[in-house]
Computed example of a mutant assay.
Amino acid sequence: MPEGPSIVVFKKRLQRFEGETVTESGGYNNPFADSISGRKVVSVETYGKYLLLDFKDFLITVHFGLFGSFLINESKKVNTSFSLFFGEDHINFYVVKIKKLQKDHAFDQEINVFSKKYKLEKTKKFLLEKYGDKRIGDVLLNQDVFPGLGNIIRNEVLFLSKIHPESTVEKIPSKKMKELLQTIKEFSKASVELIEQKIWKSSSSVYKKKEWEDQEVLEYVAPKIKRKTYVVEKVQKIY
């Protein structure tokens, strides 16, 4: 499933259609074709793992799941689940799910690291109040707290912050927690360029690696979230 930085890359590719009017909309998984056709794309934004298409009076959210993709002015041999035509140009989405939401739908951009409205202290407070007794390695995949954060970012930021994923949230020192949240913000944004260069996964420190600077990278599956976890135990401290 694409993580938040990948969705930002998608957004950058699709922003060329901002201000353009949809001449036709289709797709086998698109019950909103009549509402979309004839409407102008005001903006293309993201929230977590969602692509947001703003049509002024409503939003269309696009979720890519495990196998979703899209092509611009190209087609696959399979049917599109969602399509947008702009005269001679078109976008074909495959294996995606879409929803239509009213513009007043609350996406809390203050916990979205890709938003200019992001507030680190708000995330920290929310994390401690609601998930203080949970393991940090589990909570990092909770989309209510960390929209867009996936398993690659989870493993990398914990390593870079020298925090073991089995650490209890409320036991992590305040300064160290702030460091982790800042690392999440910086790493997530830096990942966009690495994805565009197609070197994101290959440039990782511990994700799917066997060793780091002659230190063994321990691989195991976190029991609660069932996700692969990579740890350098001599570097990452358990709190």
Rank of each mutant, 00 (worst) to 15 (best):
P2Q: 03
S6E: 14
I7C: 07
V8H: 03
V9Y: 09
K11R: 15
R13H: 14
R16H: 07
E18S: 06
E20A: 13
T23Y: 06
E24M: 15
G27F: 10
Y28N: 09
N29Q: 13
P31W: 01
F32I: 05
A33V: 00
I36L: 14
G38V: 01
R39V: 11
K40D: 02
V41E: 00
V42L: 09
G48C: 04
L53R: 09
F55S: 03
F58H: 06
F58N: 14
I60Y: 09
I60L: 09
H63G: 09
F64P: 05
G65A: 04
F67N: 15
L71W: 06
I72T: 09
E74V: 04
K76F: 04
K76W: 01
K76S: 10
V78S: 12
V78L: 07
N79Q: 11
N79H: 08
T80D: 10
T80E: 15
S81L: 01
S81N: 07
S81H: 05
F82R: 03
F82N: 09
S83G: 11
G87Q: 12
I91W: 07
Y94C: 08
K99F: 12
L101A: 10
Q102I: 15
H105E: 15
H105L: 02
A106E: 15
F107A: 00
S115R: 10
K116Q: 11
Y118E: 01
L120I: 10
L120W: 08
T123S: 15
K124Y: 10
K125D: 13
F126K: 15
L127S: 09
Y131W: 08
G132Q: 02
R135Y: 14
I136Y: 05
G137D: 13
L140C: 06
L141Y: 12
L141D: 00
D144N: 10
F146W: 11
F146I: 02
P147I: 00
P147D: 03
N151V: 08
I152D: 00
R154K: 15
N155F: 04
L158N: 07
F159I: 04
L160F: 13
S161Q: 04
H164W: 05
T168P: 05
M177F: 04
M177P: 06
L180K: 07
Q182L: 08
Q182E: 14
E186C: 02
E186H: 07
A190E: 14
V192F: 10
L194I: 04
Q197P: 01
I199R: 10
I199H: 03
K201P: 00
S202G: 01
S203P: 12
S204F: 02
V206Y: 12
K210P: 07
E213T: 03
Q215W: 00
E216A: 10
V217R: 12
Y220F: 15
V221N: 01
P223S: 08
K224P: 03
I225K: 10
K226N: 07
K226F: 02
Y230K: 08
V232F: 05
K234G: 08
K234H: 06
V235G: 00
V235Y: 11
Q236Y: 06
I238F: 00
